[in-house]
């Protein structure tokens, strides 16, 4: 395991070097805090924020992409090449979310080439959190502010320097590429990291997560969905800011004899999400749609993939225009589970 330190004054140089033959995505300042952006100028990179307002999932799973184009009698595949990409400064929750997305897009041995072409070329340098954000609850859903899943390199902010730990071969290769700028981590550094990790985990409050899947199934007809449905506005904000939401819609667009088939993010909160061609809609109420969102993450995904599809980043909570808080919903579901 390669463990290095990088003086913080050299971060820009580090990124410039690694960005030479890669697309570089990193957090930059934004009016909503920070956002992931493709950066050409590493001096713009801002590592002071915690979670970016939007998740970095669009680096590997863009909001929309063309699957193929067509003309009267034939279709053209789109080129599936993707460039080497460095996703720098994603928080451990976001890195873990990429690991979850990987499971979906390779589910049951069926690979999604559109997703994988980008994912396979993406090297993730996760940045561990020293303090939690305003709505963070990663430890409650099996994550950690210093978690390693989904990342190739895990970085710690030690004040004067960044500690970098390679987690995969790709991560190791990346660190070697920049070895002129880094130094081998000392025992002292490693101890500092351990201490920081312990500190960080301690600061997160645990919230109850309903884990009894049978009881969750029972909650399908529970009353709580009714009121949540009244509150829920039916916008797609929670799904679009979520690092693990992966539902998409496929539509055709045509124009003067040519067309293209595009895949777009979709959200189960939209009433059109389940609208059939016949006009029938199996999810008629917002209550049913909100329930779907919660149960998909905490019941159906555990059934299908063995774990909940929530990494506790809290973006849905900070961004919900109706003030809905997933943590509160989970708490209520947990107490329901206890009763039944």
């Amino acid at each position: 395991m390669l463990e290095m330190t990088l003086d913080k004054s050299k971060v820009q140089e580090f990124l410039r070097l690694l960005g030479e033959n890669r697309r570089l995505f990193a957090p930059v300042k934004d009016r909503m805090g920070t956002k992931f952006s493709e950066v050409a100028d590493p001096s713009l990179v801002c590592l002071d924020g915690l979670n970016t307002n939007l998740s970095p999932k669009e680096v590997v799973f863009p909001q929309w992409e063309t699957l193929y184009t067509f003309k009267e009698d034939h279709a053209n595949e789109v080129k599936l090449a993707a460039q080497e990409t460095l996703l720098f400064g994603a928080r451990p929750c976001d890195a873990r979310a990429l690991g979850l997305l990987d499971q979906v897009f390779t589910w049951e041995g069926i690979d999604d080439p559109y997703y994988l072409r980008r994912r396979e070329k993406t090297c993730v340098v996760a940045l561990a959190c020293n303090t939690p954000g305003e709505a963070c609850f990663c430890t409650s859903v099996g994550g950690s502010p210093v978690g390693e899943i989904g990342a190739d390199v895990l970085a710690f902010d030690l004040g004067e320097q960044l500690y970098l730990r390679a987690l995969t071969e790709r991560g190791e290769a990346l660190l070697k590429e920049a070895s002129t700028l880094t130094e081998k981590a000392t025992e002292e550094d490693k101890q500092a990291v351990q201490q920081a990790a312990a500190e960080a985990e301690k600061q997160l409050q645990a919230i109850p997560i309903p884990k009894d899947l049978a009881a969750l199934k029972e909650s399908f007809d529970a009353e709580i969905w009714e009121e949540l449905g009244l509150k829920c506005l039916g916008c797609g904000t929670c799904a679009y800011v979520c690092p693990t939401c992966h539902c998409f819609d496929i539509t055709d667009e045509t124009k003067k004899g040519v067309g293209r088939r595009v895949r777009n993010w979709d959200s189960c909160a939209f009433s059109l999400f389940t609208l059939h061609g016949s006009g029938h809609n199996p999810r008629t109420t917002q209550a049913a749609r909100y329930r779907q969102r919660v149960l998909h993450k905490f019941l159906y995904c555990p059934e299908n993939f063995g774990e909940a599809f929530c990494v506790g980043c809290g973006r849905c909570i900070t961004n919900c225009p109706a003030g809905l808080d997933l943590r509160a919903v989970l708490e209520r579901l947990s107490s329901l589970a206890k009763v039944t």
Partner: peptide
């Protein structure tokens, strides 16, 4: 814009069953 339609859904005037956008 990420087309989440939060603007539309939060707006009291936007009560159409089916929005022109969809």
């Amino acid at each position: 814009c990420i087309r989440c339609y939060a603007c539309r859904q939060a707006c009291p005037n936007c009560y159409c069953e089916e929005c022109f956008a969809e």
